[in-house]
Amino acid sequence: MRKTVLKVINGYYRYDKRYDNYQLEDINLELYASEWISLIGDNGSGKSTLAKVLSGLYRLDRGELFLNDVLLTEETLPLFRKTVGVVFQNPDHQFIGTSVEDDVAFSLENQQIIRPEMKRRVEKALKDVDMWDLRSQDPTSLSGGQKQRVQIAGLLAMQPDVMIFDEAFVMLDPYSRRELLTLLSDLKKTYPLTIISITHDPEEVERSDRVIVMGDAQLKDDGTVAEIYERNASLTPPPSEALHRLLIKKNHRLKEGFMSQADMVNFL
């Protein structure tokens, strides 16, 4: 049995409480421990809103949210703060500390962790993302990739169960993006992390264990990478599958069904 980390039951959310126009509608979702989930969907479909609900920033208007089987309420909110971390798109809007290590320590200060423990955790987190040498730098002076590394260290220091990335890698060049994704894969091997990443990058989607598609405030589809691309022809597929489709179109005789990068390499 897989352990459920986050669970939403009949979730509804609207920004404007005066109207019956919901930005999240009838959300039923169960996320398991150590899963890497890609959340995809058109702009305005409600991905960021869902991310903010899952992190406990917004409260559902109807329905329930559970974290490790604990219902989110005013009393259990601190548990969410410790267990779910979020990185948003623009890193420059997310630095609170004037130095890298200060920034990583910020959430620990709020949790009233004592200083020796803080020092230990900050050092570990910064070493995990390979930023320890730059600990006293001004975070705004770093490169895009380094900035997001610091953000990840900030989450790691909290020792969370869930990390949510809301288009956190879109502003990066392809090289740094790949580097960060590899870093996350490695971290996932060391720590029991559930990763939820909102993304438009097919290459990133291909790396995930599970893909959730949103559209018009609802969950449209949910499955493995192969299932999702087989069922949703309108989505831009990863390079290997794109090539696969192209070859079929050109009347090459290939088997039907999704082709991952590994499948394609084998075939060739």
Binding site: K82, F88, N110, Q111
Partner: peptide
């Protein structure tokens, strides 16, 4: 954004 970050960071 900052307000969101302050909040999720507890």
């Amino acid at each position: 954004d900052m307000a969101d970050v302050l909040e999720v960071k507890g």
